[in-house]
């Protein structure tokens, strides 16, 4: 009995999907567009994440040591700072390394190279580069370092760059917050559009729903086929959208690479295609089934 009913519901759902060709096509088109918007939100999210990470990685605190500081001393301090929870990483740059980097950076400039040759000693200082896990933590870390009052530390450059770092930090968190809000808003609009489309499709069948009730069908027997059609809409829309992003991300990748060199959208798409399809499918199914289920409710009250 149950099996017969399930079989009948599945068949009725498929038949109504096939026979209401235009309505089905229109609904799937709108749902695919909605999923397309959501897919774009995912890409934009990943893209801005990469861009912000790149900016954030450029911020650091540098501690310079007096010329006489021993390497052991410096490494002990390094260990100590690495243990602070807010610190993501500490890099030690020895005096020789600093000089080598300096030479490399200024190798085109003959005057500087000559000037260096005049010196007997390496004028550069050893340093520790400290990166925070979160850009908002630099102020606290800097304060912590100053309070430690290491005798071998000559200066901490945070206070010099403090203004810039703080500004960048607040900009980054504003961009993240606003981005999340815009994404949420767009997703909400997209869901409303999908819901209304399905509601309209069911509205056109309200009389048939009433007839089915009068002929003696239970609510589930009527609702079932609509949910099945909702599943079909969701699956097709998800497949279409995922497929659509393949040529699109391929075509856009070179242009985006100019703006954000660290992000290859096509590779990102290919690398995450299974997750991406799963999200599209999940959103499509949720939209299709829930919209149908909610929209049909009032017409079943016959």
């Amino acid at each position: 009995m149950l099996f017969t009913n399930i079989k009948r519901v599945l068949r009725a759902g498929y038949l109504s999907f096939r026979r209401n060709g235009w309505l089905s096509t229109a609904t799937i088109t709108v749902m695919a567009l909605v999923l397309f918007v959501m897919g774009n939100l995912i890409f934009i999210g990943a893209l801005s994440q990469t861009a912000l990470d790149a900016v954030e990685a450029k911020i650091d605190i540098t501690m310079y040591f007096v010329p006489g500081a021993s390497e052991d001393d410096i490494l002990t301090i390094k260990e100590e700072i690495t243990a602070v929870p807010a610190v993501a990483g500490v890099t030690y740059v020895s005096r020789d390394q600093a000089l080598a980097e300096f030479r490399e950076r200024h190798k085109e400039n003959a005057m500087i190279v000559d000037a260096l040759g005049e010196l007997d000693d390496n004028p550069l200082e050893a340093s520790l580069n400290i990166q925070a896990k979160n850009s908002s933590q630099y102020a606290a870390i800097s304060e912590f370092l100053v309070n430690k009052n290491y005798p071998t530390v000559e200066k901490i450059n945070y206070s010099e760059n403090q203004k810039v770092i703080e500004k960048l930090g607040s900009m980054i968190s504003t961009v993240r917050g606003a981005g999340a809000l815009v994404a949420l808003l767009l997703a909400f609009v997209a869901v409303l559009v999908a819901f209304n489309t399905i509601r309209l499709a069911i509205y056109t069948m309200r009389e048939e729903i009433g007839i089915m009730r009068l002929v003696g069908a239970t609510r589930w027997f009527i609702r079932g086929p609509f949910l099945v059609a909702g599943v079909i809409y969701g699956v097709i829309a998800a497949v279409v959208t995922t497929a659509l992003f393949y040529p699109l991300s391929w075509g856009f990748a070179p242009y985006l690479a100019v703006v954000i060199p660290d992000f290859d959208i096509f590779q990102y798409y290919k690398g995450n295609i299974i997750e991406f399809f799963a999200i599209m499918l999940g959103a499509g199914l949720l939209l299709g089934v829930f919209s149908s289920g909610i929209a049909i409710r009032r017409y079943l009250e016959v």
Binding site: E208, M212, V215, G216
Partner: peptide, 16 residues
Amino acid sequence: LPAQTAYENVAFAMEA
């Protein structure tokens, strides 16, 4: 039911 044949219209009452 406009999207169903005469046979299906009658059969629907029995299926239901």
